[in-house]
Simulated scan of single mutants.
Amino acid sequence: MIRRFGETPEPGRTYIRRVGAYALLPRGDALLLTCQTDPDPDLQLPGGGIDPGESPITALHREVYEETGWLIAAPRRVGTFRRFTYMPEYDLWAEKICLIYSARPVRRLGPPTEPAHTALWMAADAAVEALGNAGDRHFAARHLRRLRDR
């Protein structure tokens, strides 16, 4: 069973399952995040949908680059969650299955190529409070606990 965060699915509403790969990208005590400004500002773990025929790791590399401009290395799966939400950019209600990875940001090639995205570094403790969805906050908090336990 996959842990659910956020809203309870509405009875009678049809949700389209969307699987995506997302990354915790630590450097020291900070995380590399993306802020999607359209339709509304939303701070997120970089990542997104897995295209048909694409592997989760390939999607992770592509999405992180598109949303941050960074190349990553050594992705390692750390968990999964799901959430039910409306996705205005696709005009659909989705059951998002979020595959969460930890990876090392290795090199910034330039600004994000995805429109309406800005990459930013944020202290992990601030990210735990600022991320826009409860699943992202949960995995950022878990990362922060590991940092403090070292």
Rank of each mutant, 00 (worst) to 15 (best):
I2M: 13
F5E: 02
F5D: 05
G6V: 05
E7V: 15
T8E: 15
P9A: 05
P9F: 02
P9N: 01
T14H: 13
Y15A: 08
I16L: 15
I16E: 15
V19L: 09
G20T: 08
A21R: 05
Y22V: 11
Y22C: 08
L25I: 00
P26K: 00
P26S: 00
R27G: 04
G28P: 13
A30P: 04
L31K: 00
L33P: 05
T34W: 01
Q36S: 15
T37G: 01
P39I: 04
P39F: 06
D42W: 15
L43Q: 10
L43D: 07
L43A: 08
Q44H: 11
Q44P: 03
P46A: 08
P46R: 05
G47T: 03
G48S: 04
G48L: 08
I50F: 00
I50S: 00
I50Q: 00
I50C: 01
D51S: 13
D51T: 12
D51K: 12
G53M: 09
S55E: 08
S55A: 03
S55Y: 06
P56G: 11
I57L: 15
I57K: 09
T58I: 06
L60W: 00
H61P: 06
R62S: 11
R62W: 10
E63S: 11
Y65I: 13
T68G: 02
G69N: 02
L71V: 11
A74T: 15
P75I: 02
R76I: 11
R76C: 10
R76W: 10
R77W: 08
R77M: 08
G79I: 10
G79E: 03
T80A: 03
T80Y: 05
T80L: 05
R82H: 12
R82F: 08
R83M: 15
T85G: 08
T85N: 07
T85E: 09
M87Q: 04
M87R: 07
P88S: 04
P88Q: 05
E89D: 14
D91F: 13
D91M: 14
A94P: 04
E95H: 06
K96W: 05
K96R: 04
C98W: 09
I100N: 10
A103T: 06
G110Q: 10
G110I: 11
P112S: 03
P115M: 10
A116V: 10
A116K: 08
L120M: 00
L120Q: 00
L120N: 01
M122G: 01
M122S: 05
A123E: 13
A123D: 12
V128C: 12
E129R: 12
G132V: 09
N133G: 05
N133Q: 05
A134V: 02
R137M: 11
H138P: 13
H138Q: 14
F139C: 05
F139N: 03
A141H: 02
R142I: 01
L147C: 09
R148N: 05
R150H: 14
